[in-house]
Amino acid sequence: MTEISLNILDVAENSTRAGASLVTILIDISSADDTLKVVIADDGCGMTPEQVAKVTDPFFTTRTTRKVGLGVPFFKMAAESSGGSFDIVSEVNVGTTVTAIFGLTNIDRMPLGDITSTMHNLIVYHPESDFYYRYTVNGESFTLDTREIREILGGVPFDVPEVSAYIREYLEENKQEIDKEEIY
């Protein structure tokens, strides 16, 4: 994985597969703390303490098509190798919260990358889950809540070209405003 946003796409995929009705994705960039924090929280089926203990082990997976599960280990490695930290909390039938903190100016931190495409992909291709997304840079933020969008649209699906394009523009333009020409 070459971008933090690709890790987010991958790990958030687990949330939708866990049957989450709401997936919360928070990105908080703070120059003062020198951190880039990513939180992915869901209200899906959750994991047992045994599964949580093993989930950062690349040779553990619940899948049967192959013997390795690299999504979470990749994310953990990316955070820790930038001087940051990684944490996963889960409870069966309650949900799972993954928190990854990256060293913002650490030379080994991978770029955030195309987070707009990640969020757009998640929202458009997972109509069965709602997403709450908040993007913050030094205290300024914007949010996108698909529950709000769904309510306004009243049954018009997200993969209709006009809606899909609107969601992408909304994500792109608001991010641009918050970033203030800085690239993270």
Partner: peptide, 22 residues
């Protein structure tokens, strides 16, 4: 900042077409 108001317009435009999308 881009607002949610534009969505309302999209909805009105799309509503009659949605039924055709089976």
């Amino acid at each position: 900042m881009k607002s949610l108001a534009e969505l309302q317009a999209i909805r009105e435009k799309m509503q009659n077409r949605v039924n055709m999308r089976s």
